[in-house]
Every structure is written in structure tokens, then in C-alpha cells.
Amino acid sequence: MENGFIILFGLTMLYLAATSRIVAHIRLLIAQGILLFLICCCNMNHILGIHMKWLNFGFLVVETLIVKAIIIPWFLYRVLKKTNANRDIAANVPHFYCLVIASVILMAGFLVSNYFISSVKMISPIYFGVSVATIIISLWLITIKHKIISNVIEFITMENGIFLLSLSVAKEMPILVNMGVLLDVFIAVYILGLFVNVINKEFKDLEVSNLSDLKDYEYND
């Protein structure tokens, strides 16, 4: 069950690589949030320590279900409506190759984790493989996409990957750190969203190439 959810999570990354409609990407963020919640539920006894069990669980519900699956997608959806950016077309790499490369990364994640990580006691290989592959695919997609709102979406999928990675270690982080991380990521997404709006107002469209005025070899004031 748990492994099934994790594999589904990995597949969402392939979907992200293969589609160009930004609304679909936002829906995918909702799916990722719910999947993370289900993964947490599946190994509740494993993840949650004996101390403050319910506090920890409440925190995880807030983090995955409320923030990752409701608030952030809703906020991005609003930004999207304001800015009228529908598709991220004309990426540097065609979608078919995107899909192939993302699949290769995902497969490499599985292979590496099964061969090398399985000897480490504290890490479960499937978690580790999928989360590392998610982080790498997200970073790679950031470099090839043209719209800045897609960059924000990929930043969030990267954070989801890091969240999964932190679940893969069979140790809990101090709850204070967890809360701080959640708060910071949330505010970062909020600020980036605000900037997307501002950029849309100033530049008329959301292409990354607009943001290349600051250089050293040309005069800028």
C-alpha cells in the first residue's frame, strides 16, 4: 500500500514533465499533497515517535493536507487567473524527450537506492530513490521551463521531494525545526507568488527571458 503511494508520487513527476498546461500542474500539486498525507498515514507508527504522538500527527495533517494540498494550490490558482498564463509552451526540450529524461532519472533513482542504499539500516530504499529523483527532476525542469510560474510550481515539487526524503529517514526531526521549515517554505511560495503578479504587471508576460537585464557587460542603471 505504502509503496504503491510512493510509486504514484514518482509517476506524478513524469506527468509534470510531459504536460504543458499550468492548471494541470497545479492539480498535480494537490495530488502530491494528498499522496504525501496518505504515505504519512500508512507508516504512522513508524514515523511518529512515542512522545507527543498526536501533536506530531496534527502537525503532519496541517503540513500535507492543509498547506500542501489546499492553501498553496488555491493561492497559485488565483495567481494563474490574474496573470492569464495557460500553457508553458516552447520549452527548450520537447515534451517527449522531457518524459524520457525524467523516466531515466526516476529509474536511476530506483537502481542507485536499491544497490547502494539498501545496506544502510535507517533508510528505506524506495523512499530514498523516489525522493532524490523528484528533487533532481524538479531542478532540471526549472532550468528548461520558460514561464516563471512553472518555476514556482517546480520549486514546490522539489520541496515535496525533500519532505519525502525527510520521511525516508527513520528518525524524527525536532518539531520546532519542522514547523519553522513549513513556515519558511510557505512564506517563500507566497512571496514568489506576489512577485509573479508584480512581474506580470511590469512586463506584460511571464517569460523568464524578461528577467535578464542585470548584466555586467552592458550598462544598466
Binding site: 516563471i148 518555476n151 512577485f195 511590469e202 528577467l211 537585464d213 542585470l214 544598466n220 542603471d221
Partner: peptide, 12 residues
């Protein structure tokens, strides 16, 4: 415009 660009790059 340049301030937006700088701030965006910085945060991202």
C-alpha cells in the same frame, strides 16, 4: 524593473 529582477533571482 531591475529591482524586481534582482529580488526574484535573490529569493529563488
Amino acid at each position: 524593473k531591475t529591482a524586481i529582477e534582482a529580488a526574484w533571482k535573490y529569493v529563488f
